[in-house]
């Protein structure tokens, strides 16, 4: 216990952190909430621009009613629903495989971890190059300079090339590229967490399983996964939170258009919507969108926690 006479010392030690938190976290949150509920807030005048200072839910109705909102919400939810399960299962399999081999384990671990320390815009550009088709597409006589690495591979095996991300591309093709990119980008962190979890499981459970002639698949599903369930829950929850905040990956591939050239904004996400609103000097709308996103993440996380409490075992 801190001596009450010494308490001021404790406060001094805490002061830098508290000041920074108040300034850059608490105050912006309060500000966001107040801006979202102020009618006609303008960043220039600081007060309701239309007539008077007035509270209301106009920002929310306008954001929800905005033509881009539904698309952004759909994109965000779709990305989450597709990428989180895929990346979690892949990460689990890779982590189990990594854990079961002895030679090169450290080297492979490093390779799998590289995307984590690489700038996501740079990765996005690399991905864009892999999927980019350069030339004139869709004209009567297309002039194509490069099909991109992925199409080269498809053509090598005799398939038809696909317009992944360029003007005139289909929505599913755009979504496919995004899912591949986000899954790949999400793997390292998940592998790291799961590998750590795997290495802390007592080897005796596996010896016991061996004695009981347990088939490999059953060892994975009945022993490894349940014993790893706290880690899996953590990975899924953070995965969903990260997924709902997806933005840079899309900007990295499609640029600030947030979509192929012929249909800008088609791949926009919730966070993209917030940035768009800010660019249009619509802080009220951006704040409202941010609060809506916060609400969605909160609900999804609560559901996740509720499910994981039922499914994790200890």
């Amino acid at each position: 216990m801190v001596d009450s006479k010494q308490q001021w010392k404790a406060w001094i030690y805490l002061a830098p952190a508290i000041v920074l938190l108040l300034l850059f976290t608490v105050w912006p949150i309060i500000n966001t909430v107040s801006m979202a509920f102020l009618e006609g807030y303008s960043g220039l005048t600081k007060v309701g621009g239309e007539t008077t200072f007035r509270l209301g839910i106009g920002n929310f109705t306008r954001v929800v009613g905005h033509p881009d909102f539904r698309q952004a919400l759909l994109n965000t939810v779709l990305l989450c629903v597709l990428t989180v399960p895929i990346s979690t299962v892949l990460a689990l399999l890779i982590a189990v495989a990594l854990n079961s081999i002895k030679p090169l384990q450290k080297a492979l671990q490093t390779i799998f971890f590289l995307p984590y320390v690489t700038n996501s815009i740079a990765i996005g550009m690399v991905f864009a190059a892999m999927f980019n088709v350069i030339g004139s597409i869709g004209t009567r006589r297309p002039m194509i300079v490069s099909y991109g690495v992925v199409n080269d591979i498809i053509r090598f095996f005799g398939g038809n090339w696909v317009n992944w991300i360029n003007s005139g591309s289909e929505y599913w093709a755009n979504m496919f590229v995004m899912v591949v990119y986000i899954v790949w980008n999400a793997l390292p962190f998940k592998i790291l967490v799961l590998l750590g979890g795997l290495q802390s499981i007592n080897k005796q459970y596996y010896d016991a399983a061996k004695v009981d002639s347990t088939p490999r698949w059953r060892v994975l599903t009945k022993i490894t996964v349940p014993l790893l369930s706290p880690m899996l829950a953590y990975v899924v929850i953070t995965g969903f939170i990260g997924g709902f905040k997806e933005y840079t990956s899309i900007a990295g591939i499609f640029g600030e258009n947030m979509g192929p050239a012929h249909d800008a904004g088609r791949m926009n996400t919730m966070v993209g919507l917030i940035y768009d609103s800010l660019e249009k000097d619509n802080q009220g709308g951006a704040s409202a969108a941010a609060l809506i996103l916060f609400g969605i993440i909160l609900v999804v996380t609560l559901i996740n926690l509720w499910v994981s409490k039922k499914r994790t075992h200890y």
């Binding site: 007592n202 005796q204 459970y205 010896d207 016991a208 061996k210 004695v211 002639s213 347990t214 009945k222 022993i223 349940p226 014993l227 369930s229 075992h313 200890y314």
Partner: peptide, 17 residues
């Protein structure tokens, strides 16, 4: 797996879940 033995470990190694 193929020896058909039963083994009781020192720490029992019961599956906790």
């Amino acid at each position: 797996e193929n020896r058909g033995i039963g083994l009781v470990f020192q720490n029992y190694a019961l599956y906790p879940h």
